[in-house]
Design a protein around this nucleic acid. Sequence first.
DNA 1: CGACGCTTTGATTAAATTCAATTTAAGTGG
DNA 2: CCACTTAAATTGAATTTAATCAAAGCGTCG
Lengths: 232, 232
Amino acid sequence: MERYSCHDCPTRPLCLAAGLEPPMLSVLSDCILAGRAVRRGERLYRAGDAAVSCFVVRSGAFKTMVESGDGTLHVTGFHFPGELLGLSGQVDGRYRDSAQALDTSSACRLPLAELPTLWRLRGGASLLRLVGLCEHQGAEHAVNLCRPAADARVAGFLVSLGRRMKRLGRSERCLPTPMSRTDLANHLGMTLECLSRVLARLDRAGVISASRNQITCNDTGRLAALAGHLDH
Amino acid sequence: MERYSCHDCPTRPLCLAAGLEPPMLSVLSDCILAGRAVRRGERLYRAGDAAVSCFVVRSGAFKTMVESGDGTLHVTGFHFPGELLGLSGQVDGRYRDSAQALDTSSACRLPLAELPTLWRLRGGASLLRLVGLCEHQGAEHAVNLCRPAADARVAGFLVSLGRRMKRLGRSERCLPTPMSRTDLANHLGMTLECLSRVLARLDRAGVISASRNQITCNDTGRLAALAGHLDH
DNA sequence: CGACGCTTTGATTAAATTCAATTTAAGTGG
DNA sequence: CCACTTAAATTGAATTTAATCAAAGCGTCG
């Protein structure tokens, strides 16, 4: 586990470092431990591990999943740079979910022991914003899952993903899908056959262009209309 | 807005006061503002309001909801004593959801300005636990919503609600349902007709006894089997 | 008592799941 | 580099389920 500086981090404006000046930035850097690169399929943490840290994605992408009592696996989320991971361990000190890399990825480790220091950086605002974002995404997803039509759920997910890409300074039309169709369908509460049909339908209608690792949005207007419900 | 003491609070062991001794308890009491009783239908806060506080439910019950772009209303959660409310305001300083009382209820106000003090009480552990619980419930609900069968979603909700009652020291079989069927169906991603049929089915099968404001669980085993997926 | 909102029940329609087969892509080793 | 093997994704047909449309009970409150 090597020390790592926040000064040259590409996701700096999205992370706890947002708005920090060099002296405070060094304080932050001293709290954070850079994780080594995590290869595709490797796990950042596992359900049941002692939750001693939270994580912020630095590059690549992760999926989080929970295993149910009956052995069923459920994909709870996909996580891109600047997003918080590992909050699930705060109830009883053990992670409830597992985080697996979808590509070669990396994440910064925020030891819980350093939280008070991180808190002081900007009066807790940065930390709260990150937690709030995490909670907001979960809530938005829950609303999306309540849509009865599969098309609406897929469209909602794509619109939401587009916003996250925009936040990263990338095009909101160019949506990376490093996850498998099976994972995505699972996350959206439908079978992979159903997801495949929806994507084919939207593709045929000219709304998107779907390929294995990327979905391009050709008509954001119609996609938003299909999603309908997402705020602003 | 009156001052209120934590010493004689019934939900004290579930709140930030958990494990605090009298001297520290007074520090906590000084941070917290007791909300006046909120009558059925009144709102604790509204979407768009400046988010200057979080809340912990003290008595009664609340529902939270978001209004979508197309005017659709979605019920994001139901909240019982000891549960955190109002975290949605942490991204941009304004609440994204509204909280409405389902019965005559009350909630303690945690001004954000006091969070650093609250944090110091027990090294942030109590606060993190409350946030973690909030996030955990959201995640559990999202998993539940992904079940294709309506019966499984209803059963999952009831099992989860039973656990929350148990946490309050009440029977896990006796489930209060102060919300309307419409609200519950909305929350569970189904039509009210569908919910009504599911409840009737479970009632006929002897698994539950459903009445307007309360659902009694007669067979926790079969209910858990229907829910299937919830961890432990 | 009667009006109103909420809930339940019934019949029909539409949609997603399931089961099954095919196509495409990816990874392996000669 | 190409053939081979295996996994992933798509497409098709039948079945099941929930949504929709419509009507009838309940319970509450003026």
